[in-house]
Structure formats: C-alpha cells, structure tokens
Design a protein around this nucleic acid. Sequence first.
DNA 1: GTGACTGTACATAAAGTGAA
DNA 2: TTCACTTTATGTACAGTCAC
Length: 245
Amino acid sequence: MIITNDLLIGKILKRYKRFLVDIELPNGKTVIAHSTNTGSMTSCWEPGDPALIKFIDDPKRKLKYTLLACKRGPTWVGVDTSSPHKLVLELLKSGKCFGLNGIKELRSEVKYGSESSRIDIWGKHQKKEIFIEIKNTTLKRGPWVSFPDAVTERGTKHLRELQKMIKKGHRAALVFLIQRNDVTYFDVARDIDPTYAQELAKAIKNGLEIYPICVELKVSKTKGRIILKWNPKKILPFKMMTPKD
DNA sequence: GTGACTGTACATAAAGTGAA
DNA sequence: TTCACTTTATGTACAGTCAC
C-alpha cells in the first residue's frame, strides 16, 4: 500500500481533545491535524518528533490535515487507525497475508453476533466462513510490542463474539497490525488490561487464530514529493506475557 | 475535601437506512 | 439509483454527582 499525494512532514507539538494534534509545518506555521487514533499512543511520539500528515481538501471536513505517522528515533510508527484495515484487505486480496490466504468473497464491516458488533473483514475459506478482527498495535516496551495500550472493553467484547463464531463452526482470526519495525516480539499487555488478556487466552484455547503482522513504514522523497509505503515484513513471535515477566 | 463513578464531547470514515 | 441523513466505532479528558 502506497500514498504518494499531498503528504507533508512537520513536527508534532501536542495532542488535545482526543482527536486533535498541533503540527508545526516546515514553513513555521502551526496547523491542527485530525488524529484517527484515539488510543494513548504511548511510545509513538514525543513533542518535537517528526510527523507525517496528509492534506485532504474536503469541504465537509473541519480539519484539512490527518496525522498518519510519527518518527520515533529512526523508526516511523503508523498511528492512523484506518490504514491497518485497508492494508490487511489489500494483503488478503493479493494472497500475501501470512497464513490467511485463499479467502474469497471478502467484505468489510459486516454485522455479526448477538451484540450488534461489526467484524472488520468477513470472507469464505473453502466451505467455512472466516471472521477477521484487526487491531492497530503500536505500544513498544523494549523489544516487545503490546496490545492493548489502554483498557479496551470493546476489544474484550469482540473476543467474546469471535468465540461464539468459532462455536458455530466458523473460523475466527485476530490480526494485530504492528505499524512499526523496531520490535521483536508481540505480547498482550496483561498489566494494562487483565480482563482482555484473560479473555484472549481463553479465546486462543477455543481456537482463535492470532496473526501479529509487523509492517515497516518507509517514507521517502522523490522529485520533491513525499511517498509513504507500508511494507509487510513478518509474523512476530507471540508470547502471553508482559515484559515484566 | 477526596476518591470513585458516570455522562458527555470530541472528528472522521464507512455502512446502513429512508426518501425522492 | 442517488442523495442525505443516521448509526456505529474509536478511547481519553473533563465536568458533574455522589458517598464517605
């Protein structure tokens, strides 16, 4: 997946009101950008870090810029929560989604379950339905990348719904799309949300498939134009423990 | 006064729904 | 079929309320 138009690199100054971030442009002007990431974004950026934003000239929008990624040290970290969905869908369609291949009739945001949930991606593999939930994952602690970075009741609810689908004879998979390439292992942040960790362990026992996919974000300049490319690298080893363990 | 809890606001995208 | 409006999803910050 590549974005080639209307990208700018500025400096991230502060975040406030949940969705808003102040970005200082190279010309010294400060603009307000929209952040689709409502998580804590711990370890993703510090004030003054480079930030990649996209200019979107849509009259229906209040804010003309959307925050896509921040640079922590040498590593770009993707913080746009809409990108993982698009990227995983693209990988599934192209048959390059690490163990999740051969899925047909792919559909996005399909209603399912008894709690009016919506699955990120639904499809058919051979004769079975498959339900795929995607989680944007960025919390870095040493060589580990962890999920969640805050208590997530909805995440736990999704796990319950996926287990119900497995009981009905379907397949269910959880893709942790890790938008940074400076980590070695994936784990569940039991210290942050013990309920989620417990439910995930139960779900795995019940047959939930886990795919922690590590993606490298490459930002380059060609003829003055900035290009952002998501480059899927590998599946990370999965450990049901925290770095403290 | 303090801590725990609850409700609301915030911006956007995408899907769903209903009217023309 | 198209368009406009509504609903859903996301999780933190903050204000207000209540009990102790």
